[in-house]
Every structure is written in C-alpha cells, then in structure tokens.
C-alpha cells in the first residue's frame, strides 16, 4: 500500500482571524489564517483544516474570503468546517476553493442533510465531524456545541448512519481528550475506524509525536489532526512525519 497517512494541522478561525495563536517564526501576521496556511503549505502539511468558530451571522461571511485567499496561494487540500448548515453554505465554500466541508451539528439535527449534500456534491467532499464523549466503558455519545450539549446518540451507531447517508470521511474528536495533550482516545478511534468503510481522521488530545503514531498504528486512523503542537512550534510538520516514518508509518516526505 502506498497511500500515505496524512498529517493535518487545524486552525480555529473567528471573524476571519486565527484564535489560538500561531507562533511560527517568520510569520508576518500570526493572526492571519492565510499566512498560517501558507506556512503550513511550505512546511509539507498534507491537508489543512479551518474550523470557523464565528458566532455572529454577520461575521460568517469572513470565512469565504479567508478560504478564497488561501486557495489562491496554497495548492494543497483544504477542509472547512463550522456552521455548515445548508447546501448553499457548502456550495459557497467549494466555490471559494475548499475541497471538503465538514458538517457537525447540522448532521445531528437532520441526518438527511448529509444525504442531500453527498448526492449534490459527491461523497468525497462531505466530512462528518463527530464530537464524542465517553459515557461508559467502550461507549461514547455524540455531543454538539463544542461538547456542551449531549444528544443521547451512540457515537458508533451515528458513525455508521452517517456513512450510509454518504459521508466520505469522518473526523472523530474525543471531547474528553481535546486540549489535554494526553493522546487521542485510541479505543474510540479504532472502534469507529473498524466499523465503517470510509477514512477516519483522529482528533483531540495530541501532545507528543508518539500520539500521532498511536493514532494511525493503534487507532487505525488514516489521518491525524493536531492544532496546538504545531501552532506553538512544539513540533514541525516534518518532525511529525519523520517520527511517524521511523515507526513504520508511510508518510509523504516530498
């Protein structure tokens, strides 16, 4: 097999600005998502993820401009999520230059929205983002609104239902681990990866490069997403990939 495991930095964007600061050297404007995107592009990231956390509807227009300016300069795949609620939202993001959109709350509220989106734009550009919390041994529940609202929906059942409706990829975030730097929830990641036929992106909890190895090797994820370890310069994309390669995980180094 020669398809490579992907390393995906994720930027939280609010009103057109990066929220959790990015501390790259040589970055002209650390708050500008486009500058950050360019830096990650040059650093060899396999894909980039923007999560728009803008609260007001007025500010939501800014993400389209951010995506458009990024796509003009970065020739790498771009996934955009946050507040994707209608087919028109998806269409605007794709036209601006996004390759994939990630759907979260709207998929929980109306699972058929995922089916409509996949029919219209193709399965391959519909990512469903699952925010999961463990509620019992080997049991996880779907949460929305940044982990505040419980839904009562079993995460594994939901993952399967989303793929049946046409999700081409699942972004699996452990809300228990997110920001904790103690590693991905491997049991969760593997349970979902082994249950569904589409690729899985592991998210939430990366603190060391070993965690990224574990996400792929033990969690069976096809891609690993991280935010702060890259933004704050703890590790570079290249260090992450070299480390994964040293542990036998095929990665792209060109």
């Amino acid at each position: 097999m020669t398809l490579k495991a992907r390393v995906i930095p994720c930027l939280d964007v609010k009103d057109g600005r990066v929220v959790k600061g990015v501390s790259f050297v040589n970055l002209i404007d650390a708050g500008d998502p486009v500058d950050a995107a360019r830096a990650y592009d040059a650093a060899g990231a396999d894909e980039l993820c923007f999560l728009d956390i803008t609260a007001s509807s007025d500010g939501r227009e800014t993400i389209f401009d951010v995506v458009a300016r990024t796509a003009e300069q970065c020739f790498m795949p771009l996934t955009v999520g946050g507040g994707v609620r209608t087919l028109a939202d998806i269409r605007k993001l794709l036209l601006a230059g996004a390759d994939k959109v990630s759907i979260n709350s709207a998929a929980v509220r109306d699972p058929d929205f995922v089916a409509q989106a996949a029919d219209k734009f193709g399965d391959q550009c519909i990512v469903v983002s699952l925010d999961c919390k463990q509620t019992a041994p080997d049991t996880w529940e779907i949460f929305t609104h940044g982990g505040r609202n419980a839904t009562g929906i079993d995460a594994l059942d939901f993952a399967e239902a989303m793929v049946k409706r046409g999700a081409g990829e699942l972004l699996v975030t452990s809300m228990d681990r997110d920001g904790g730097k103690i590693g991905y929830d491997i049991a969760l990641t593997r349970a979902i990866a082994d249950r569904v036929p589409v690729p899985i992106i592991a998210s939430g909890g990366v603190g060391t490069l070993d965690h990224m190895v574990e996400g792929v090797r033990d969690g069976h994820a096809n891609a690993v997403l991280a935010a702060s370890i890259f933004h704050f310069g703890t590790y570079t994309i290249d260090e992450a990939k070299q480390h994964m390669a040293a542990h036998g995980i095929p990665v792209r180094l060109d």
Partner: peptide
C-alpha cells in the same frame, strides 16, 4: 483487494 483499505481513496499516493 485489501479489505482494510478505505473507499474513497483520500490522500497522497505515488
């Protein structure tokens, strides 16, 4: 042929 490979193929290949 390898049933563990996911479809769609998403990512970088040679």
């Amino acid at each position: 042929e390898d049933a563990t490979l996911k479809v769609p193929q998403i990512g970088w290949n040679t």
